[in-house]
């Protein structure tokens, strides 16, 4: 019965994640650890598998909308994969308390980022690396007209992806919020391009450490199977319900929930 409970909880996590533009990891890991008492290391491994599932399943949608910058995604994946490898190595050194503290802090950070006003800024000039790799592209305006955008601060963006990779492996999340922040804030990509490209990259980021966790024996089918299946179905349902639901209200409620859960995880880490 606990597996069915986990399946339902994961379905909810996937549904909510799709509506709010978050991966399921931010919801699933607290549910597993605080709700079901599963060790955080098993929870992180299961969460990473579910992230791979949703990202791989939705890749076609990300590409169809012509927002994903594939060249940029491939380039930035160098950073996220290297970071994820470092994150996996660090996870072997960190004890459960440290992971709880980090996760709680990240939840608080995520809550604040969700309240941040969204504005789209386009870069005026390419960084030399962006010019060399032809990372600039075009994006469609609401009117249907396609305009070009440049890519700035490429080395900083790559380094930020490295940090995102470390967080992904340490905490079992996709680090989508962090990636969008780097692409939108530092590299000056249009917000929709940042979101789409980040979503496209998340699966590769998660896979970089998921494989290692898998061979280390941290992926337990008791939790990984219902979590992966639940999040997949929930995300699919959430994507379809998105247009009908009041996203702003849900977002505000979720921010409050995030802050409460953040406090609980930090408390558990300090215990």
């Amino acid at each position: 019965m606990l597996s069915f409970l986990l399946l339902v909880a994961s379905l909810g996590a996937g549904f909510l994640g799709a509506i709010l533009g978050l991966g399921g990891g931010i919801i699933v890991v607290p549910v597993l650890t605080l709700g079901l008492g599963v060790d955080i290391r098993y929870s992180i491994a299961a969460s990473l598998l579910s992230i791979v599932a949703t990202s791989s399943g939705a890749a076609a949608s990300f590409l169809k909308d012509n927002l994903t910058n594939l060249r940029l995604a491939v380039f930035l994946e160098v950073g996220t994969v290297c970071g994820a490898i470092v994150g996996f190595l660090l996870s072997g050194l960190a004890n459960a308390n440290v992971l709880f503290l980090l996760f709680g802090s990240f939840l608080a950070f995520s809550a604040l980022m969700m309240l941040r006003p969204r504005r789209s800024v386009r870069a005026a000039r390419n960084h030399p690396w962006a010019a060399k790799l032809k990372l600039d592209s075009t994006v469609a305006l609401p009117s249907g007209e396609r305009v070009s955008y440049a890519v700035e601060n490429v080395p900083f963006g790559l380094a930020a992806m490295g940090v995102a990779g470390v967080l992904s492996a340490l905490l079992g999340i996709g680090s989508g919020l962090f990636k969008v922040l780097a692409m939108d804030g530092a590299m000056k990509l249009p917000l929709k391009v940042s979101s789409a490209t980040s979503n496209f990259m998340i699966g590769v980021t998660a896979a970089a450490s998921a494989g290692a966790f898998f061979l280390r024996g941290d992926v337990r089918p008791d939790i990984a199977v219902p979590v992966s299946l639940g999040i997949l179905v929930g995300a699919w349902l959430g994507a379809r319900a998105l247009v009908r639901l009041p996203e702003t209200l849900i977002r505000r409620v979720f921010v409050l929930v995030l802050l409460v859960v953040s406090a609980q995880m930090i408390r558990k880490g300090l215990a």
Partner: peptide, 9 residues
Amino acid sequence: ALIASFFLG
């Protein structure tokens, strides 16, 4: 790098 990451486990 992804292949190599598997062997870390």
